[in-house]
């Protein structure tokens, strides 16, 4: 009986020390994770400062900037138009089905337009652009990094931030609000089409209520948000590309991280921007 107690005690001590070691290792790993994330955040802020400094201190690179606007803005239109249009359509159908129960059919117009201008337009456009453009930026810059093209550029006295990051940054900050405006328009227009021509809502009431409850503030709020989203996507994708690890695996990881981190940043930042804008630009 005494032996059993001794062995039981030893087993308990061993189990406790094992558990304690496990906890210590987990804490250590968490600590390293937090330090790594903070380091990355710091590096990203330094890159942002470098981009701002270069934008205002160096001669503008119009050719590269227009080229990026074409690739980032013009070539993203199809994706954005389809996203905006079908979101507006499905939103109109869903709201109609609910509002029809309480005889508020004509509220579909303002609900669709306010949702498209304040939230759905900027967020969905940013998410689509993060997937399409953010991935392309990270993959292109990552490949340039691992094939020594960035080193080659630096060796010729040209800063990659100046030649590569700034044009993409400007193109996204200008291009994303324009794409967002396009998504808003097609979302509202397709919502109108579905509401009036498919659900049978009276056209005059639909439009009248939409104008009555949608203001320029709603549009401005969405467009200003999209400027911030463009900045976040450009910064994160550029950072991930510039810091891609060696080899195809490194570029692949950088591309995935650029899309995931950009998308999450857009969603999280949207909440905080909404709270801030509700104070600055009240509904």
């Amino acid at each position: 009986m005494r032996d059993v107690c001794v062995y039981g005690g030893l087993a308990t001590v061993w189990a406790l020390s094992y558990a304690a070691r496990g906890i210590m290792e987990t804490v250590q790993r968490f600590r390293q994770f937090v330090i790594g994330q903070l380091n990355q955040l710091g590096s990203m802020l330094l890159l942002l400062l470098d981009i701002f400094k270069t934008t205002f201190s160096k001669r503008p690179r119009w050719r590269e900037t227009v080229d990026q606007m074409y690739k980032i803005g013009w070539q993203s239109q199809a994706v954005v138009v389809v996203t905006g249009a079908f979101t507006g359509m499905v939103f109109a159908v869903q709201t109609y089905l609910q509002f029809h129960k309480v005889k508020m059919d004509t509220a579909v117009g303002p609900v669709v337009s306010v949702a498209m201008t304040r939230e759905l337009g900027p967020v969905l456009t940013a998410l689509m652009v993060a997937g399409r453009v953010g991935a392309a930026i990270a993959a292109e810059l990552g490949t340039m990094k691992v094939t020594e093209q960035l080193d080659s550029m630096r060796s010729m006295g040209t800063a990659p931030v100046d030649y590569l990051a700034v044009p993409r940054f400007i193109a996204l900050m200008v291009g994303l609000p324009l794409l967002t405006a396009e998504a808003m328009f097609f979302g509202i227009f397709s919502g109108y089409f579905v509401g009036v021509h498919m659900c049978g809502i009276d056209q005059a009431y639909f439009l009248n209520h939409m104008y009555q409850f949608t203001s320029a503030k709603d549009v401005a709020s969405g467009l200003i948000k999209s400027v911030f989203f463009g900045m976040f996507i450009a910064l994160i994708s550029t950072y991930k590309g510039f810091n891609a690890a060696e080899g195809a695996e490194g570029v692949g990881r950088a591309t995935t991280e650029a899309v995931v981190v950009s998308s999450l940043t857009v969603l999280i930042a949207n909440f905080f921007l909404t709270v801030v804008f509700s104070k600055i630009i009240p509904v």
Binding site: T147, Q149, S155
Partner: peptide, 24 residues
């Protein structure tokens, strides 16, 4: 600094191992 290095770097031409030509 990186900007101060620019005039020094302009004294150099570098042939990288894989060429490092710009793909685009």
């Amino acid at each position: 600094s990186e900007s101060e290095l620019t005039p020094i770097r302009k004294k150099f031409g570098v042939l990288f191992q894989g060429g490092a030509l710009f793909d685009s």
